[in-house]
Amino acid sequence: MINLISLWAIPAILFIILTLGLVKKIPIYEEFTEGAKDGFKVAVNIIPYLVAIIVGVSMLRASGVIDSLGHLLAPLLEKFMIPVETLPVMIVRSLSGAATLGLFSDIAHHFGPDSYAAKLTAVIVGSSETTFYVLAVYFGSVGIKKVRYAMLTGIIADFIGIVAAIMVCSYFFHPSIG
């Protein structure tokens, strides 16, 4: 059922937009190309912001600081029945989408897709967004320099999401470590 909705969502949206446009006698081809012109402009405009955030995050990942943090927090994690290997995902989740998916498929293959670690990671990845990327790109595209409380809101919501994921997963899947 859910797969069916995913499959038909885009075709249905396109059908509705184009049919409604034609019924209302809108020159849909001309309007489409007119709107599409902005695609290049927007994509090029966000390059500086992408470079800043992606280079920064790549450097952070290469430096090994995330692994060090994992070692540091390991005792605390065990107390809450959180598999240690999920910590890098929690840290990287807000920073980089590609890195998160990489870590997640690594966990799914290494510990098995039916392991508690894989399920917890799946829920964390599926329920959140790459906060810093979205902030940098969305604000960058319109030239906002002062983000005010947007970043703090994103970070707090991410944190609440992770805590909720840990609680909900331990209820659904019964962790068994140690």
Binding site: I13, L14, I17, L18, L20, G21, V23, K24, I26, I28, E31, F32, T33, E34, G35, A36, K37, D38, G39, F40, V42, A43
Partner: peptide, 15 residues
């Protein structure tokens, strides 16, 4: 980006 911006423009004009 170009594709969806084009579609969005039609959607906008069509109300």
């Amino acid at each position: 980006m170009a594709f969806w911006l084009g579609m969005m423009r039609i959607a906008e004009k069509a109300g």
